[in-house]
């Protein structure tokens, strides 16, 4: 499984606009958004703004690094998480 990132601006209705589309091959699996300064201790972290299919979860996590986010998404897609 190869995940591919594509930078995107996301209209979250907040200051959190810098995002990444995460593709699993050609299928959109998730949208990650980098949290802005208003989030204080979470600022700079990556938030699972949306997850599709196996990546969808009510308890949407936040990741310190994009790599960690991709690992987690990969595990979800492989039914491991």
């Amino acid at each position: 499984m190869t995940l591919r990132l594509q930078p995107v601006q996301v209209g979250t209705g907040s200051f959190d606009v810098d995002g990444q589309l995460v593709f699993d091959d050609d299928l959109l699996a998730a949208v990650l958004v980098r949290l802005s300064e208003v989030h204080e201790d979470l600022a700079g972290m990556w938030f699972l703004e949306a997850g599709f299919g196996l990546v969808g979860t009510a308890h949407r996590p936040t990741f310190a690094e994009l790599d960690a986010a991709q690992t987690w998404i990969g595990q979800r897609l492989a039914h491991e998480a």
Partner: peptide, 14 residues
């Protein structure tokens, strides 16, 4: 409320 802290913070900012 069944929201994430991120969403709560966004709502409070708004």
């Amino acid at each position: 409320l069944g929201l994430t802290p991120v969403h709560v913070n966004r709502v409070l900012q708004e």
